[in-house]
Design a protein around this nucleic acid. Structure first.
Lengths: 361, 361
DNA sequence: CTGAAAGCGCTTACAG
DNA sequence: CTGAAAGCGCTTACAG
């Protein structure tokens, strides 16, 4: 189309013309930008996609035009041409709203200033069509990638299906169950061992642990970290001090009641999450005992509940938000295996509040 | 293309051929379906879009083919042709994860078996580019519609912008601030008046109210409902019994401390949400008083916190999940003004637990 | 009730 | 460094 290069003045006039005639009614397309700039659509496309094969001057002129007429490339059209969408998916099954929303926020923050948007989808492993539903979803939407939260992230069959479907994914998991480029490890084991280290540093030697749901790897990892710490601190762990829970408040209550009924009850309890720690507090109060005077309690997660119970919980805070953000960066990176570009997520940090103290002699 | 109608046998062979050659590698397109069926793409398109202009027999044959080869229409291609995407947006600013996730779940359930998916986006009114950011988002994504949660839903400027941009929207709000077709009203006023009715039915006559954030309409509506009930029950409401809060635990605590310092403290407190009610419990415990013996407390929302505090909260439960689901149905309906098709959302229900009792004489 | 052609707004070889 | 043409997978008038 362009017989000769347009002058700056001609371009400004073209912009003005466009603004006068269209603006309010119709959105600008790549064609509009091309015509105003006096170049082909190819060139505009190259600029949108940061191709180096464009003269700097041309790039500058075009960018100004784009800015002025408020052109936004159509993600659907780009997606159609690219054979994938500009959507990434968050697949979640985790029942805790704080976890899900924190992660979601981190993902959204990671998506800021990218061309991608987030579509969310709860998934239930118990659903008989679980795998094929997700596959249909991923293929229909031509997702650029998906982020898997615990405990979906721990499902090897899911990961395998995604690989076969050619869909990139990031698993967020407490254990290293995939290649570096496909996973972000959350260090639950380290967090739990810190919890136990802290209790032992306070002088406790009778420390019990309330386990989480057995179908969550985090339960296993937290227990492992707890065990490692006790071993390192030469603290004996009677099997009665390990009691089952399922991450709910109620299970924390009943588990604690079991512990209190023991011939030698513990002087400290590490609950695998805050929810159960709150339940523990409840059981202890019902038993007429005081926290932390009679019994110290440590939770895990530092979710909101940790500060709304009394006493407020000593607990471990995971960088969930940052995990989500990192997951996006890794997912959208061309070189996700590059270790140095993606540092490990920091370990959980201990937050000390009023639910712990040295044991009363 | 089709010289003469294909026989059933020919079609079955065509299906088999397709499955043999493609299946694993490439996804089926409308062209594949058309070729196998021996009809034009137009016909397939009509069937996808439920056009009545297709012979029943043709429709049946094509549907079987679609089923067998697992064809899924490409939402991006459809979107491009339709000039809108098959995405709806949830715009949220509400800081409570339980509310957001409940609503999100309701919306997702409403989206089941439709052609649409959900993309989520947190919005902060405090952001100076708040409006233009949303506008850019909505236009770029060519959203089929958006759902607005409190307190975004209360922003008239937002609604106006969306109307101008030609983007359908549903506001979820405690007050009727838009045309029937654009809003779902949550009846907070009724809920609050039930709370007060209940306290008065227990015999309380000294009832205080902790207000919520003044930039949320729900605060105003809940207060209004509270007032109406007291008036109806001929209970005097001293101005000191109305104290400010901001929906947080801490504000519930300090508001309650104000109330307890009064020459004549109330015998019952209605907090505008559970969070503040939990804070009230905390303040009361710190003051050495007991709930409900010395003071009854009622919350609002029935979020998880209501059952993790002690005593558990008497509170009001809103049908948030159903609200989200209804919002989708209204948004996607061709005739959203049809009152009868979209019944009002039921009023909140009172959930009685251990935080309330008759006043001790 | 059905089909051929053009178009939605992009990108991708290919050619220069 | 730049452009003309074809194509991504659909739908929409239009014609029959």
């Amino acid at each position: 189309m362009p017989q000769k290069k347009k002058t700056k003045k001609e371009i400004n006039e073209a912009i003005q013309d466009w603004l006068d005639s269209y603006s309010s009614s119709k959105k600008a397309t790549i064609k509009d930008v091309a015509q105003i700039a006096g170049v082909s659509k190819n060139t505009i496309s190259r600029i949108i996609n940061n191709s180096p094969l464009v003269k700097d001057e041309t790039r500058l002129v075009v960018k100004t035009i784009i800015e002025k007429i408020g052109y936004q490339p159509d993600p659907q059209a780009r997606g159609l041409a690219f054979r994938h969408s500009f959507l990434i998916g968050m697949l979640y099954g985790n029942p805790n709203p704080h976890f899900v929303l924190n992660l979601q926020q981190g993902i959204l923050d990671g998506l800021d200033d990218t061309d991608y948007e987030l579509v969310v989808r709860p998934c239930y492993r118990s659903n008989p069509n679980y795998l094929s539903d997700i596959q249909a979803f991923v293929e229909r939407m031509k997702l650029a990638g998906v982020i898997l939260t615990p405990s979906l992230a721990e499902d090897e069959a899911l990961a395998k299906m995604l690989r076969k479907a050619g869909c990139k994914y990031i698993r967020i998991s407490p254990a290293e169950l995939d290649e570096e480029k496909n996973i972000i490890v959350t260090n639950d084991r380290i967090g739990a061992s810190e919890a136990a280290d802290y209790l032992s540093s306070l002088g406790h030697t009778q420390i019990a642990c309330i386990l989480g749901r057995s179908d969550f790897l985090s339960s296993k990892e937290r227990l492992e970290g707890f065990r490692e710490s006790l071993r390192a601190n030469k603290i004996h762990l009677p099997t009665e001090y390990l009691v089952k829970g399922d991450f709910t408040f109620e299970s924390g209550t009943s588990a604690t009641q079991e512990l209190l009924a023991l011939p030698t009850p513990p002087t400290a309890i590490f609950a695998s999450n805050d929810e159960m720690a709150a339940g523990a507090l409840h059981a202890i109060r019902l038993a007429g005992l005081r926290v932390p005077e009679d019994l110290s309690v440590v939770g895990y997660d530092d979710f909101h509940i940790a500060v709304t119970v009394w006493p407020r919980l000593t607990t471990l805070r995971s960088p969930i938000h940052d995990t989500g953000k990192l997951a996006v960066q890794k997912l959208l990176s061309e070189n996700p295996s590059n270790q140095s570009a993606f540092p490990d997520i920091p370990s959980p940090t201990l937050v000390v509040r009023e639910s712990t103290s040295p044991p009363t002699p």
